[in-house]
């Protein structure tokens, strides 16, 4: 076990825990924001640099501070380590810089972007960015692409987090898309138009922190904050079958995995991965396909996390009705 202090809060965590994971155990404002790290995807993290923190004491054994800021998502804790996140002006300034870099070529087309309202980049820039912009150059643009018939790739919005590539590597039997070109021109692509055709590819949409990969079946259907999230499940022989439904009236507009407080798909209660298959995601768009468990509480995102729907009496009544319908259908 290692004892680590982050912004004055001390916690004991198993050896090999990263600073970000230790901070998440403490919770609250001292958790460094992350854009590319995804706890359930191996080798993710390290790219976006938003979780840079300052290690003011390396460990009890070697108390020297680390000379540079380190990425909290990759740096593991040592016994006696002391870390500054929001208590370090240097960290906050560096993070402001990172936000500016991430937005430098981002189109800021939030008004027409399906991710708006649940976008990690929006949250990051509100929370950690500066007002205004200092760039006057034309933004980098790429052609829009379809990755198969269900996924839209809007490369202009991509921040190169590599999460979708890791989904393909770690969930899909073969990877047909990846990172092409280099540096400023690097892009996610299949090189030649190639459909990503396997049961797990839809999870790329869920891991995308921005609106670069979106669900074509939900495209322009509704702003996310006008939809009501419900926990629901069904018996699926491919995946865990536990999803969040995004509902408007009786219509299921969208199906996603269940994302937790850090906007990552949560494991199921019995500890299995919460990834969902494309059938559940794209094909099961009737309330009767699902057993409704109740409204889903959204922790994190700007607009939808107001959770106003939770208070709506009418909705609750609707719910019990829908639940009955769902159970009936399920039992049939």
């Amino acid at each position: 076990m290692a004892r680590v202090t982050i912004d004055g809060h001390t916690i004991e965590v198993p050896d090999g825990t990263t600073i970000v994971e230790a901070a998440r155990k403490i919770g609250g404002d001292i958790v460094p924001p992350t854009m590319c790290y995804y706890s359930t995807l191996k080798t993710s993290g390290g790219y976006c640099r938003t979780c840079l923190v300052k290690v003011t004491k390396g460990s009890d054994k070697d108390p020297r501070p680390m000379p540079k800021l380190v990425v909290g998502c990759r740096q593991t804790v040592m016994d006696g380590m002391e870390v500054q996140n929001i208590t370090s002006p240097e960290v906050l300034e560096a993070r402001e810089g990172v936000v500016e870099f991430l937005l430098l070529n981002h189109p800021l087309d939030c008004p027409v972007c399906d991710q708006a309202g649940e976008c990690d980049l929006q949250d990051l820039s509100y929370g950690h960015g500066d007002e205004g912009t200092r760039t006057e150059f034309r933004r980098r643009t790429f052609p829009m692409r379809n990755i198969g018939d269900k996924i839209k790739l809007h490369m202009n919005r991509c921040i190169m987090c590599y999460r979708c590539v890791k989904v393909a590597e770690q969930l899909c039997p073969e990877r047909v898309h990846g990172v092409l070109n280099r540096g400023w021109d690097a892009e996610i692509s299949t090189y030649i138009e190639k459909a990503i055709d396997n049961e797990w590819s839809g999870n790329m949409i869920d891991v995308c922190p921005v609106g670069a990969l979106t669900d074509k079946t939900f495209r322009f259907k509704s702003r996310v904050w006008f939809t009501k999230p419900l926990d629901a499940h069904r018996d699926c022989d491919v995946c865990c079958g536990r999803v969040a439904l995004w509902v408007s009236g009786d219509a299921v507009l969208r199906v996603t995995g269940r994302k937790g407080v850090y906007h990552e798909i949560e494991n199921t209660e019995d500890g299995k991965p919460g990834w969902i298959c494309n059938t559940c995601r794209f094909e099961k768009k009737n309330l009767s396909d699902w057993v409704i468990e109740g409204p889903r509480h959204i922790d994190r995102h700007s607009v939808i996390s107001q959770n106003h729907y939770e208070q709506l009496k009418q909705l609750k009544q609707d719910l019990s009705r829908q639940k009955l319908i769902g159970e009936k259908a399920h039992n049939n």
Partner: peptide, 21 residues
């Protein structure tokens, strides 16, 4: 440096191009 940046991390990918422009 703009030409040679690998593009993995954001400060380098974006910053080198910005300085060049």
């Amino acid at each position: 440096y703009h030409h040679e940046s690998c593009g993995q991390c954001s400060p380098c990918r974006e910053g080198t191009g910005w300085m060049y422009k």
